[in-house]
Design a protein around this nucleic acid. Structure first.
Lengths: 219, 219
DNA sequence: CATCGTACGGAACGCGAGTTCCGTTTCAAG
DNA sequence: CTTGAAACGGAACTCGCGTTCCGTACGATG
């Protein structure tokens, strides 16, 4: 009867990192449509090696997304300590949009995989910080009073999915963000029709938006 | 030597219409991810029958999209005759967003396939009418002066790709549209960074956005 | 250095897509 | 009604995906 080794073998650990790095690059460029053969080739590894660390493609993507959502939540939490909550919110929106443009899979996840189990904890943390930040920006009089955190999430999702998100060089997503931000200001706001998407409904809708990840689970 | 028949056979014409109707339904619901087996089943027809009218899947989709873009261009052209250009623009935006929510493939095409050859003519017509309408709304003082027609297209694309577009029942896309529209008003506008996407670059970016249609061409 | 078992790469599997082939059916002209 | 061509449906082909299998190689232990 052999003892169970407590640590991974050296080559296994090394390959796990290689796979993660390659996956980050491939999914950043191609989004969830990036394929495991592509990841394996980029990592200089066989496909089966991926499966030794990640049971399915979705697990691999979730591992990457957890990081992105954690950074998002961290930015929001940090912003809560700022003097000017509105300006702090704008900074977070800019930084997050920039991350979405750089990382296509993160841009997609905002609208597609918002409900992935692995990112649930970070998503909750992010939403709660965002709610507080929105409330403070509204209390400061800079932000219109009739928007909620979910509206901001939907806004970011749309921004990431629009053509301007692909314009890395021209950065025209900054222009679209500025346009959208002007719609969030208290100054000159017109009443909004319809109630906002509830958090629960937002999760349900994002779960069915685009079949890419869902069909992975099926197959 | 036989004479070439000038008209289609009766059953062929009937099946062509059935295929178009089924394709409209399937692609409206599933977007470009709808499959030809689904269309064939819905039309009560074999897959090969589709290919007798449409050489490839993309040709079938383009046939549907030409209609949608024509309606878009028509709405814009009609709006040019209105008394209040700003209100007329808002009506067009609302009607178009509603069409995108109802027809998922039309929503996707705004952001994915703006550059399809078959819709080129209608797209040009739509853009030119939109440019005029924007100019008039700006001249009337209701619309901010630093936006261009391409900004509006990008805005619609983002709206169609956001989770709120799936909320058919709650119609929360109307809320997001109202939010975006407030960003287009002259009142309280803040200067925009970056130049807008040029029409050419917009076409190029939408051509590569999401590989769904592009990969059809490849395969 | 020997050896045991973990981790390896690449071939193979199943699936569903878009597309094509082919024997059969159906339309319509004579 | 006959008959030839056009159109039919569904099987079959190719492709790439996610996933699994298996003989081989190599890192860790004594």
């Amino acid at each position: 009867m052999s003892t169970v080794p407590r640590t991974m073998r050296a080559d296994a650990a090394r390959n796990r990192e290689r796979v993660l790095a390659a996956a980050a690059a491939v999914f950043a460029e191609r989004g969830v449509d990036g394929s495991l053969p592509q990841v394996a080739a980029r990592a200089g590894v066989g496909v089966a090696t991926i499966y030794r660390s990640f049971p399915t493609k979705v697990d691999l993507i979730e591992a990457l997304l957890a990081d992105r959502f954690r950074a998002f939540a961290d930015r929001l939490t940090d912003a809560l300590g700022a003097n000017d909550p509105w300006e702090a919110l704008l900074d977070v929106l800019h930084a997050t949009a920039a991350a979405q443009v750089t990382d296509r899979v993160f841009g997609q996840v905002m609208s597609e995989a918002f409900s992935l189990p692995a990112v649930r904890a970070e998503r909750e943390r992010a939403l709660e910080a965002l709610q507080q930040l929105v409330a403070r920006a509204q209390a400061a009089g800079a932000m219109r009073g009739d928007v909620v955190a979910e509206d901001v999430i939907v806004l970011l999702s749309g921004l990431a999915a629009s053509p301007s998100a692909l314009d890395r060089r021209g950065r025209s997503w900054e222009r679209q963000l500025a346009l959208a931000v002007d719609g969030l200001r208290a100054q000159g706001a017109h009443p909004l029709p319809r109630p906002p998407l509830s958090r629960r409904r937002l999760e349900r809708l994002t779960a069915e938006l685009r079949g890419a990840l869902a069909s992975c689970r099926r197959g």
